[in-house]
Write a protein that binds this DNA or RNA. Structure first.
Lengths: 261, 261
DNA sequence: GAGTGGTCTAGACCACTAA
DNA sequence: TAGTGGTCTAGACCACTCC
């Protein structure tokens, strides 16, 4: 990899540096390779380490780099396409697929916010199932699935136990009941967020990690029966929304087309 | 707003600072209000300005703050829900809606990447329409819509003129032809990206602004007829994916539920 | 212990906005 | 011209990984 010589420009140094690094990465590095360390890169380009890091921050946000403390800065693998829809991901994941791993389940009175969102009276019991989505063995998303007690009347009233196998058993029990309702509609939104402490732990990422927050409303028989808030790792995920009946086409490397045009 | 006193913690200062600021913002500030300036905030919390800025960076990424050079740091308005689907946004935007504003149109041989994505021979002419999506008068997204010449054979062969009214006329002409094809399927993906120079200019944002990159494949009669790459402002947009036949429910403040639980 | 990225500091100067 | 956020520096120390 050549050495810097940042030509004077009206743009910030870190942005120009990013451009140079993008070119270098695309032409001279491949997935999994490690870049020279930050101190050396900074010296090579004649900038302060903080400035170099600003450029690397951008590239990490774009999913081009992965930085590992104690290891180095690696070229990231292309983002994994993650299908987001009931049909494709297998709902609710109990029998048809191993895509989701139930973690635990807590039953508690709904907060004002949650009650409003679910359209139930404040204080009604809500079962919250937490689960992880695995793709190719990697944790890609953490989800909190909120189900009003009134939507799953057949749920066995087992005593609530914290931790242990009973927890995830109960989670699966809720999912099973939900499955039997026959969910027939869903509405989603996607926005950018950052992982808070609990999510970050589940995702095995540091707090502040950018995530794509997918909020899904599930309906059965014309009634809202569940609300899911899923946080997908923004660095490694590309969410895909298929539509039945669409011709099968070659998956596109969006970034490539975007950069090229 | 009270003054700092950051209790000792195993977490980084900037992250704790973020937590404190979130609480403060939610309880003592409302949309449009300006925070004290960075130098004062840093002094008040007893940290360096760079550390304070790290916390503000997070809050800006979450869409809670907007920073304007020369003005100050403002509390951001809640994100705007932007429907993303052919039916809801009006396709292709020529007659049914004013949601999109055509900017220009260039016709050129397809790059290798683009040809691959469109499933056409490399070098075939592709019309690329650039347009902006407006929501409530605000520019929310910039899009490049790629249409192979072979998909719109009836397109009048007008001479290519750079700039001026003829440009956007031609853009509308392509859109009209595409409309007449009867698009009957679409497949999407959403991922995180940053605005490059051109996009940034169109979005009236600085380069590096985080965006949600939506890639859409349009099919007609079982054939891929167009590829759109849209970049939505991640700070102000919440993309919504509706489904016909779903019961109408109260829109959810996802962030609120997420934070509360 | 050596090497890596992560955090934090104290200061400087620049670009932009508004009065 | 004064005040704001944006950029950049040179250095320090910490937390983690691997040998």
């Amino acid at each position: 990899m050549g050495q810097g010589q940042l030509t004077a420009a009206p743009e910030p140094k870190y942005w120009h540096l990013r451009t140079v690094l993008v070119r270098t990465i695309d032409s001279e590095f491949s997935t999994g390779q490690v870049l020279p360390n930050e101190r050396e890169l900074a010296a090579r380009f004649g900038v302060a380490r903080a400035t170099l890091r600003q450029a690397l921050d951008q590239l990490e946000l774009e999913g081009r780099l992965v930085r590992r403390r104690g290891i180095g800065t690696l070229i990231a693998a292309p983002r994994v396409g993650v299908p987001v829809s009931r049909r494709e991901e297998g709902w609710p994941g109990t029998t048809r697929t191993q895509a989701w791993r139930a973690v635990d389940c807590v039953s508690a009175p709904a907060s004002a916010q949650l009650a409003l969102a679910l359209g139930i009276p404040p204080g009604e019991t809500v079962h919250t199932v937490r689960r992880l989505r695995l793709v190719q063995g990697q944790i890609m998303a953490a989800e909190s699935l909120h189900v009003p007690d009134s939507a799953v009347p057949l749920l066995p009233a087992v005593p609530h136990v914290v931790g242990g196998a009973a927890e995830s058993d109960r989670a699966r029990s809720v999912l099973r009941q939900l499955d039997r309702l026959g969910v027939d509609g869903e509405s989603r939104s996607v926005e950018l967020g950052v992982a808070e402490a609990k999510e970050a732990t589940l995702l095995e990422r540091p707090p502040g990690t950018p995530v794509l927050v997918v909020t899904t409303q599930y309906a059965a028989a014309g009634r809202l029966v569940a609300l899911a808030v899923s946080t997908y790792r923004a660095d490694t995920c590309k969410l895909t929304f298929g539509e039945t009946g669409l011709v099968e086409v070659t998956p596109v490397e969006a970034g490539a087309v975007r950069t090229a045009s």
